[in-house]
Write a protein that binds this DNA or RNA. Structure first.
Lengths: 194, 194
DNA sequence: TAAATTTGCTAACGAACGTTAGGTTGCTTA
DNA sequence: TAAGCAACCTAACGTTCGTTAGCAAATTTA
């Protein structure tokens, strides 16, 4: 049931794997060609430049995160529920796409302008959605945190390390991980008096 | 009251700053020289190679983390206290040395063998100390977590994103940040029945 | 003051880099 | 069967890279 990948997609996938383990700058086109079993120059039949690969990966993942977040936001419930759903959506994208997520999280700084700027704007927008959920939870008395920006960063930090150790073969499923993460983070934030 | 830096230390410091913002591979010796106001070749009067700088930064920071952790471990108390102290120690090192911490956390993979291997062993040893604290807390019934390795990774993940946004001029002091982080993470882990 | 050390320079090395030009092969479609 | 296209090749380009050699000036030490 494997999807048939176009050559361009194969290149992107192989590059993603190399970018994750060695980094964008430390991966040469000759390394990539070698991993594909062809010559470096041949890659240019399919892509315009090395950076184009990075751009495609970064913005494709940005899209995936936004789409997952949108779906989660369509559900209603308390702020806790909303936050749990947003976390679950985020973890699902991360675990379904570990390598591309790693590139998305760490290699975006090698984008040139205007891509670099656009990327940062998207990331900010994404984080703001989390911030809004937390703000509404603070207003309703559900959450008790010292600083909402601080809370968001800590949450996302906790999530974004996932790709470094998550293995699909591991004993926890993506949903279990999301539940455990939600439990750890949320109960720490919930006002215990309520 | 500024410490007088040797030329070698100046080079290390400037390099650290560049490695943080652009990454090790994307920083050339000519970039570094330019930032120092000298020629690239002149740097080699002080260091043996580009990688030597990375080695010095990585292992110096490893030392700092271990020393801080040792001091914290000397205090006694409940598992919660021990964890709080370990977190405080970790945050203190992170905040006192943001740029070097960023390099320590992200650029170590560009170390060649045997440094790469040694570094990973040290990191594992460091994480194990956290794991032991949590294990003892689970045994004593203080903590209630699904998986101890999972808990450690989530804690350290939450801490290790700090360097990306922490500014010494910010409104929170290092101690306040450590307290807030402990509160967020610990209360989420504590068994609420106790 | 002589010797040693520190700090920097210019010039250049060989290797590796991203990329382009131009051509060949083999499959697919009209 | 002819045309078009996808996929890859060899050869090479100009540039940048980390680094070395050899030398000069300034500063520190004896």
């Amino acid at each position: 049931m494997e999807a048939v990948l176009s050559r361009k997609e194969q290149i992107e996938q192989t590059a993603t794997s190399l970018f994750k383990t060695r980094g964008f700058s430390a991966t040469s086109m000759r390394d990539l060609a070698n991993a594909l079993g062809i010559e470096a120059a041949s890659i240019y039949s399919h892509i315009k430049s090395k950076e184009e690969i990075l751009q495609r990966v970064c913005f494709r993942m940005a899209n995936e995160f936004f789409e997952a977040q949108d779906k989660a936001a369509a559900l209603d419930g308390s702020a806790s529920d909303k936050l749990k759903n947003a976390i679950k959506a985020h973890v699902k994208v991360l675990t379904h796409n570990t390598e591309a997520s790693a590139v998305f999280l760490h290699e975006w700084r090698h984008l040139s302008e205007p891509f670099h700027g656009t990327f940062l704007e998207l990331r900010d927008k994404y984080e703001n959605r989390f911030r809004e959920i937390i703000r509404s939870g603070i207003e309703s008395g559900e959450f008790q945190v010292p600083d909402e920006k601080f809370a968001v960063l800590t949450i996302l930090s906790g999530l974004n390390w996932l790709h470094t150790w998550y293995k699909p073969e591991g004993k926890m499923t993506a949903d279990e991980i999301a539940d455990n993460l939600s439990a750890m983070l949320l109960n720490g934030m919930k006002n215990n008096q309520n």
